[in-house]
Amino acid sequence: MFQLVIHGRGGQGAKTLALMIAETAIQAQSFAQAFPDFGPERTGAPIRSFVRIDQEKIITHEPVTRPDVVIVLDQSLIKNPEVLESLSSSKNPALIINSPDSSGEILKILSQFFDFKGRIHVVDALAAVAEFSGKIHPTVPIIGKLIKITEIISLDDFKKTYESKFLEKLGEESIKQTLKTLEDSYYGL
């Protein structure tokens, strides 16, 4: 079973991202769960969302404690106790972090707390979407990277989910740019 924890701040799209990943998996005939950190919504406060994907029916309802991948949408959360807890689970999860810094610099910060053994994938999401002046959501390059390193869902399937969810809201032009950004991130361009 694939398990993912997304750390972000309220309003950054951690919940929507989790829902879209699970929905894509379910459309592709897998079993999946997505659930947010429960509670009152507070913009800017640290929040988590969780995803499970499996080829068999998922019966557990415990929070994800041993993730395969940890996504951090906001670098300022790197020292957050919940982020450190996710990263220090015995599974040595891969870390995808939105940051302008190098993976070496991220590792240096983590080393102050524990010996992180997983792989670090840095995505400078804000830079990647900067030229589109707010029309592309910064989570887009992050999801491209997640799909690339895990192939847990297919890029094409995710594109379909994204399009069906946001075409009406964003319009064709923005969707086209978004999907291109997603591909660029996936192919590492």
């Binding site: 929905e23 659930f35 429960f38 309802h61």
Partner: peptide, 12 residues
């Protein structure tokens, strides 16, 4: 159904 645990979790 369990509040949040079931009500707010996406499943098949």
């Amino acid at each position: 159904q369990d509040g949040f645990i079931t009500s707010h979790s996406l499943e098949n």
